[in-house]
């Protein structure tokens, strides 16, 4: 199957963020970056689909400055076949601006399946995948926890709802966004890392859409006050209940 996987480079969340002097972004000094979690699931899902079907080609696409090439190389080292960087000075916050750029690149690609992560773990907007589908006129199933495209014609997927789930189908070609549950990404092998260096990585200018959503301010939420350990066995239960009633007032 000819598959495209959209990938975003995001900061590692296991850190104490600081706000940049601009006040509208996090300070990137000292941050580690990696592929957004759900995008890793999408890349793995694409690999498993083509491994089962024996063949096909998977293209990783990422929008941003040249540092995203590192994330694209990681995707290639997992086993994806080629990569495209849509070069932009920065990744806009506005999902629609990004969607137009991705749609322009994906339009002529005659992909059977276009995969996204459910959302980028940093901006958390969960918007670009369905927007790209709209712009391309393709059907879209978002946030799927199970995915089956084994007949080569139809997407059969499951979506988790609040206290329920639903089963959804649509014809291929389609856009699907991947949630928890589909696949855990493999670690690149040494062989994969070596092979990735020789795989094609094309750089094209990003044709971003209009920006109407911007970040006016970023700030850190208030720190939690230090907690206390009330005891080391069930003797502490009455004190806990008292505090829940009188201090926290939640009981």
């Amino acid at each position: 199957m000819k598959i495209a996987v959209a990938i975003k480079r995001v900061p590692d969340m296991d850190t104490r963020f600081k706000i940049a002097p601009s006040g509208t972004a996090v300070d990137e000094t000292g941050l580690k970056f990696d592929m957004s979690d759900f995008d890793g699931y999408a890349a793995e899902a694409a690999l498993q689909i083509n491994e089962k079907q024996g063949g096909g080609e998977i293209t990783a696409i990422s929008l941003g400055p040249d540092v995203v090439q590192e994330t694209l190389r990681k995707a290639l080292s997992m086993g994806l076949d080629k990569a495209v960087q849509l070069k932009a000075d920065a990744v806009p916050f506005d999902g629609y601006a990004i969607a137009e750029a991705l749609a322009a690149e994906l339009k002529g690609g005659s992909y059977d399946l276009i995969l996204f992560g459910r959302m980028a773990i940093d901006s958390s907007n969960q918007s670009v995948g369905p927007m790209v589908a709209e712009l391309l006129g393709l059907p879209c199933i978002s946030a799927v926890s199970q995915l089956d495209v084994s007949d080569g014609k139809t997407v059969k997927a499951r979506r988790e709802l609040e206290g329920a789930y639903e089963e959804v189908t649509c014809p291929l070609p389609a856009v699907v966004t991947i949630d928890e549950g589909v696949a855990r990404p493999r670690y690149p092998s040494l062989k994969g890392i070596m092979a990735a260096k020789k795989k094609p990585l094309e750089v094209k200018p990003a044709q971003l859409g209009p920006v109407t959503a911007t970040v006016a301010k970023m700030e850190l939420p208030p720190e939690r006050a230090a907690g206390r350990i009330l005891g080391e066995n069930a003797d502490a239960v009455p004190e806990l209940v008292r505090l829940l009633q009188t201090e926290a007032k939640v009981l």
Partner: peptide, 23 residues
């Protein structure tokens, strides 16, 4: 910003050709 709302909102925004403020 429910499972169904998050599925539909970006489609509506794209049809209207505008950005979305989510969640």
């Amino acid at each position: 910003a429910s499972a169904h709302g998050k599925d539909v909102a970006p489609r509506v925004a794209a049809k209207l050709k505008v950005g979305l403020a989510a969640d």
